[in-house]
């Protein structure tokens, strides 16, 4: 479990590989991007860098400025994953492999970015 951060995203519990997490930050103002496909809910900026904000919750919510984000990196691409709560290690460990509620899903950051890229690819 030490190689992941476990977060709740709406009603989902997601394990995010630490190797792809660059920062934890507040969302700030999230600007919607019309025509951007789900799970992109908008863009925000972190120290001048523009980041797509992704919400894998079901259904996606309106992100508030104080909502926390994980800044993810995969190759040259970065994006921010909005989450509702960071699970403490003991709680996260209890979810690992046990029949937990909600079940723990491991986030494949590369696949998530591929999905966004593919969906945004059609102009």
């Amino acid at each position: 479990m030490s190689d992941v951060l476990v977060v709740d995203v709406g009603d989902r519990r997601v394990a995010v590989p630490v190797a792809h997490v660059r920062a934890i930050s507040a969302a700030g103002f999230v600007t919607p991007v019309p025509t951007a496909p789900l799970p992109v809910v908008g863009v925000t900026q972190l120290r001048g860098q523009i980041l797509p904000v992704l919400d894998v919750g079901q259904p996606p919510r309106i992100v508030q400025p104080q909502d926390p984000l994980l800044v993810l990196e995969y190759g040259p691409a970065r994006a921010a994953l909005v989450f509702t709560r960071l699970c403490p290690p003991d709680e996260a460990a209890a979810s690992d492999g046990a029949p937990a509620e909600p079940p723990l899903e491991r986030l494949d950051v590369g696949a998530l970015f591929d999905l966004v890229r593919a969906r945004a690819g059609a102009p």
Binding site: V33, P34, T35, A36, V40, V43, G48, Q49, I50, L51, P52, P76, A77, R78, A79, F113, V116, R117, A120, G121, A122, P123
Partner: peptide, 13 residues
């Protein structure tokens, strides 16, 4: 600024 590599194909922006 660039809109971010993941969204660079959104031709409207």
């Amino acid at each position: 600024r660039s809109l971010a590599p993941l969204l660079s194909n959104l031709s409207l922006f």
